[in-house]
Amino acid sequence: MDLTLKIWKQKDSKSKGRFETYKVKNISPNCSFLEMLDILNEQLIYKGDEPVVFDHDCREGICGMCSLYINGRPHGPDKAITVCQMHMRNFHDGQTVIIEPWRSRAFPVIRDLMVDRSAFDKIIQAGGYTSINTGGAQDANAILIPKVDADMAMDAAACIGCGSCVAACKNSSAMLFVSAKVSQLALLPQGKAEAFERVQKMVETMDKLGFGNCTNTFACEAECPKEIKSWNIAKMNREFIAAKMCSEKRKEANFAG
């Protein structure tokens, strides 16, 4: 198939960006979207131009590095999938495809389609872990964890940190990302000890880094390539309120928990 591509080009974070139009021809429907961009880039290099810069790495939908906004949707038209797994059979001959970077103030553009998502790392650094050191952990089977809890924790833990939730949200809210981690650890006995401190620190950091608020439109859930559910946001809110009310006194917290 032949396609017209309108791609965001931006030299660096300080420069002004613009759309450039490119044509690609004879693209196989079995080609992945990023392979189509590889073909475009080879074309540009042989013409003496610079290639379009985009983030990508594992190309099997798990590293979370690829981050393209295609025809108005993060990760493109197919559901429950990252760009790197999306194949060109989702497009038709003659189509115009608009490719943009993630749009969010918290994710500044580095170049073209590449953005800086270090804000996500900072949120995790604020508390997205259990505070235990290496060595000395008790036997892995010492604490029984009901299967349903382990499964729900796994559902939340499947987040790949790509940022499509933020890109999809009209408020640039990071609630789905943050809540997935909060909820995973709050569901497991290992994470409960510091659940209240964790949720407060992570939410505070999220707010500081310029992400917007959640207004319950759930575009994040609809566009999440790993189908992280919005119930995590509800759980985080509950954890947050409980923590705010109770964290001063641990005893009271236990009543609320």
Partner: peptide, 20 residues
């Protein structure tokens, strides 16, 4: 000890209905 360590970190390994 690796498995012990990971479970303590909150790695959600698969479990059976008894919680093991």
């Amino acid at each position: 000890p690796i498995i012990d360590q990971c479970v303590a970190q909150g790695v959600p390994f698969a479990r059976d209905y008894g919680g093991l």
